[in-house]
């Protein structure tokens, strides 16, 4: 029997390269979003904790929007809104900006929790010892608050890493998009989904284990 002509070609070793490159793009995108978003989020969290009107009544409802609307809707909205106000953004930039805002909104509440985890008497004691406000923040609130909310922050960071898969909707070829492209060509759905899943898992699982381990140790 003659082999039938086909558009599809099997999964070849060099396709692993293609997936690997895409995995690096996922990694880079999430690293940028998590680091920049966390820095902004900590500032927001500080604002939430110090200002009742500015933080509680203005910032908090604003940040809440980004936690109450699906990320995929945020991505599509922003990607289509940017040209309206004359911004020319490619999929990476648009995705990164949305992810940064999303991260900072989530980190803000974590950071506020950390600041509030430090008891008032402790902070008054620090101030009575002659520490300035910022010294108190840097040497008392930061180390204690960080311990209290570090696991929660890891949870947010890993969530952003996994959610970065949604940027594929805008056409950015990160890991999930790359695996879809390969699936279309090779028709080897299970294998490729498993490879993509294994990558996310290999990144996320050790970090979550480590965070749980730290939490246990600090709780002792």
């Amino acid at each position: 029997m003659q082999p039938t002509e086909t558009f599809f070609s099997g999964f070849a070793p060099h396709d692993l390269w293609f997936l690997g490159e895409a995995a690096l793009r996922t990694l880079w995108l999430s690293l940028l979003a998590i680091s920049i978003g966390s820095m902004i989020g900590v500032v927001f969290g500080w604002l939430l904790s110090v200002s009742r009107i500015g933080g509680g009544f203005v910032l908090s409802p604003l940040l809440d929007i980004f936690r109450s609307v699906p990320l995929i809707i945020q991505l599509v909205l922003f990607y289509n809104f940017a040209p309206i106000i004359g911004l020319r953004l490619d999929a990476f930039d648009a995705g990164l900006i949305v992810l940064i805002v999303y991260t900072s909104a989530n980190v803000a509440y974590v950071a506020r929790g950390g600041i509030e985890a430090v008891s008032q008497p402790m902070r008054r004691a620090a101030r009575s010892l002659g520490m300035t406000y910022w010294q108190d923040m840097r040497y008392v609130v930061w180390p204690i608050g960080l311990r209290a909310v570090f696991p929660a922050w890891v949870g947010v960071a890993l969530g952003v890493m996994k959610d970065s898969a949604l940027v594929s909707v805008l056409g950015y070829v990160e890991l999930l998009k790359a695996s879809q492209i390969l699936i279309t060509r090779t028709q080897e759905t299970i294998l490729i989904l498993a490879i993509a899943g294994a990558f996310y898992f290999a990144l996320s699982y050790p970090i979550s284990l480590y965070a749980a381990h730290l939490e246990d140790r600090w709780n002792q």
Binding site: S168, L176, I183, T189, I190, Y200, S204, Y205
Partner: peptide, 23 residues
């Protein structure tokens, strides 16, 4: 539990959609 928690939800959805479709 660990697969559900450590892979993107979209990937899980694709698995139930296209992955099982392959079978």
């Amino acid at each position: 539990v660990e697969l559900a928690r450590n892979t993107p939800a979209l990937l899980q959805l694709f698995f139930f959609g296209f992955g099982l479709g392959a079978f």
